[in-house]
Amino acid sequence: MKAEHRVRGLHFRTGRAVELLIGEGRIQSLSELSDQDSGGGLPWLAPGLVDLQVNGCFGLDVNTLPLMPETVADMVRALRREGVTTFCPTVITNSAAAIGQAVQAIALAARRFPEVRAAVAGIHLEGPFISPADGARGAHPAEHVAPPDWDVFRGWQDAAAGLIRIVTLSPEWPGASDFIARCADSGVIVSIGHTAASPEQIRAAVAAGATMSTHLGNGIQPMLPRHPNPIWEQLAADELHGCMIADGFHLPPSVLKVIMRMKGKRAVVVSDAVSFSGMPPGAYSTHIGGSVVLTPEGRLHLAEQPQLLAGSAMLLKEQVAYLTGQGLASLAGAWDLASAHPAELLGLPQAAGLTEGAPADFVLFERKGHALKIVTTYKAGIPDASE
């Protein structure tokens, strides 16, 4: 373990110059510097970003099979350069065998690579227990959508060596409440998403132990009753953490504001990033044969249907910048949505942020207007310079 060392920066919450004393992978102390001691020109300092939903980035994809453990390790390194110190690789709806192969590869990566073991807080299984309805199903393949099955899930969890931490499902299936209760009892977070469930079914899911909403406002039918509807019901459920994609394309600013106000400290920003995140603008072909276009603004859409999104292409730091740029949150507020709040949901010690005794997972970054540029990311006190 590296000997104690000191890191200086502008505290993301106060803007004041501070110094962290780092040792044994933790923050040993935090002290405020005088103007004379700070020396000026310091970068900003904030906790590492925590992303609960990452399908891929920089041409890497956990859903392109067969998934290799090295791909997961490459994702960890790529995300760390973007300020993400903890994340949940997200495996989406597929055949039972394909899901089993993907989660097994992630578990193998965690065994082989210490950096994967340190960064992966668990696997997010998004499907296949989602709504079969068009619209609510989103881009998930209809032929692999299935009702919740505890025995099938346990097989995947065994293949994953217990790493599945979040399951996104729709509670509209018969027997969903029993499945949710079993997941909750086993320590797996159940998230409502890709759903056409009735308010009664959503309330039953919450009573059974669901505690999260997956990309609230997306993965839902385009036309809904004025009220009741699944969005209102999830907003009103105080037990549910509301996850949102704050890229300016998936949700309008007014909806983001409502989710943040309703959920408070249970509001969470997720990237839901796909493999084209971090790639240059242009036309691309997907592994399932479709053509997509990534615009210079970061919008990813189907090539032949520009009105339809093809996933999220903005990582968390860009979403933090979007929230501050739109005046929806302060720097500290936006950063909490992408760091402390998701860490709290997962029960991670990183939820403590920049405090004495907390893990030394933090980033140094520069601001130009509202844009953010990562300078260095620290994981357990070890720096990894941004490229």
Rank of each mutant, 00 (worst) to 15 (best):
G242V: 08
G242D: 06
C243H: 07
C243E: 15
M244I: 12
M244A: 14
I245C: 04
A246N: 09
D247N: 00
D247W: 00
D247G: 00
G248D: 06
G248F: 01
G248K: 03
G248A: 08
F249C: 07
F249D: 02
L251N: 14
L251K: 11
L251R: 05
L251D: 12
L251E: 12
P252D: 07
P252R: 05
P252W: 01
P253K: 13
S254H: 15
S254L: 15
V255D: 11
L256W: 08
K257E: 13
K257C: 04
K257A: 10
V258W: 08
V258N: 05
V258G: 04
V258I: 14
V258H: 04
I259C: 14
I259E: 14
I259Y: 03
M260E: 04
R261T: 10
R261L: 13
M262I: 12
M262Q: 10
M262L: 10
M262P: 02
K263V: 02
K263I: 03
K263R: 11
G264K: 12
G264F: 12
G264R: 13
K265Q: 04
R266I: 06
R266F: 11
R266S: 11
A267T: 14
A267N: 11
V268M: 06
V268Q: 07
V269D: 14
V269H: 10
V269P: 14
V270I: 14
D272Q: 10
D272I: 05
V274T: 10
V274W: 07
V274Q: 11
V274E: 09
V274A: 15
V274P: 07
S275E: 15
S275R: 09
F276T: 08
F276V: 14
S277E: 05
S277C: 11
S277R: 04
S277Q: 05
G278P: 04
M279A: 09
M279I: 00
P280N: 03
P280Q: 06
P280E: 08
P281R: 07
P281Y: 07
P281F: 06
A283W: 00
A283F: 00
Y284V: 01
Y284E: 01
S285C: 06
